[in-house]
Amino acid sequence: MIMQELITIENLSFSYPDGQKALTDVSLGIYKGESVAIVGPNGAGKSTLVLHFNGILRSNGHVKLLGKPVDDNNLRWVRSRVGLVFQNPDDQLFSPTVFDDVAFGPMNMGYSKAEVEQAVKMALGLVGMPGFEKRSPHHLSVGEKKRIAMATVLSMSPEVLVIDEPTSNLDPRGKWDIIEVLKGLSVTRVIVSHDLEMVRELCPRMVIIDRGRVAADGNTADILADKKLLAAHGLAACSL
């Protein structure tokens, strides 16, 4: 069976306005139903790459979603299909209550009142936090905030869930809670992280990005066994 390609990136290069080169000639495909880890040292360009997935950063023609190039005219559709969760939940959660935040996406998509309420309920259920609708984000723990942050994009029923560092700043228990939640989702997942323990647990495929280039792309078990490769990209010296 040929898997459907959801996100296609071809020869993507990107420089920030100050001239700093962030990505060089990156090519990558994300397929329906898979769970991919994007791994790399700090400053490797992982987050910059991910910001191209839903058109926050645009290099016209180099990024395609379901075969259609991401451009200014279809951004709304792109953003409803690619759910991007940012690293810091305090940036992701900006509303006075959890309900408002989880309902934000669906409301921008133009859902009806009943549909919005349904979507919020569904999303909070998926991340294991039903009944938190009326709480305000600043009363939540970091782990709870991270899960609500995921719910805020799951409520749009995206095709792909892209998460930047889901386990950063968490204690081991919080981290394993998040891993369990992610395991329970059936949606296509792209996880950006350098938490190799989680990567091994969740992602059969792994992509290493270093200095803005794809350094490796393949089976997670194989790559994790290659200590030389890991060391070359600043990912070794872990206890795995």
Binding site: L51, I56, N108
Partner: peptide, 23 residues
């Protein structure tokens, strides 16, 4: 900088400058 990140998170969820709320 936080403002820029918050805005990116809003735009990622389809924000187009109009705030919509449920009654």
């Amino acid at each position: 900088e936080r403002g820029e990140r918050v805005y990116a998170a809003m735009v990622s969820r389809g924000f187009d400058g109009h705030s919509r709320t449920l009654d």
